[in-house]
Amino acid sequence: MSTHSHAEEHHITSNKTYIVVWAALMVMTAITVYVSYINFGTFNIVIALVVASIKASIVALYFMHLKFEDSITWVFALFPLSLLALLIGMTITDTFTRTIVP
C-alpha cells in the first residue's frame, strides 16, 4: 500500500489488563447504581454522565485498542467528539437565549 506500512505492527494487550479494565467498569457500574438512590439534585445527572464518559473512554482506549493506534485513528476518534460538543453547545445556546413570549 502507499505510506502506511510503519503502522502495521499490532500491540497485544495482556489478559491481566483486560481483567483490570473489566473490573473497573463493574465498579463504576456499581457506583452509578448506588448514586442513583441518593438525591444530589441536578448533580445526579452530572455524576451519571461523568462516570459513563470515563467508562466509554476506557472501553475505547483498551477494548477498542485506541491507546495503541496511530495518530490518524486518534483524529477520527476525537473529531466526532468536537462535533458532539458543537451540536450540544449551539443547541443549548439557542435554548438559553430564546425570548420567552408570555
Binding site: L83, L86, M90, T93, D94, T95, F96, T97, R98, T99
Partner: peptide, 20 residues
C-alpha cells in the same frame, strides 16, 4: 457542520443563535 440552523430562522430560535 456549522450552519444547520439557517433552516430555522423563523422557527422561534433565539436572535443570538440566528445571528451566529
Amino acid at each position: 457542520f456549522l450552519v444547520w440552523a439557517h433552516h430555522m430562522f423563523t422557527s422561534g430560535i433565539s436572535d443570538i443563535a440566528a445571528t451566529i
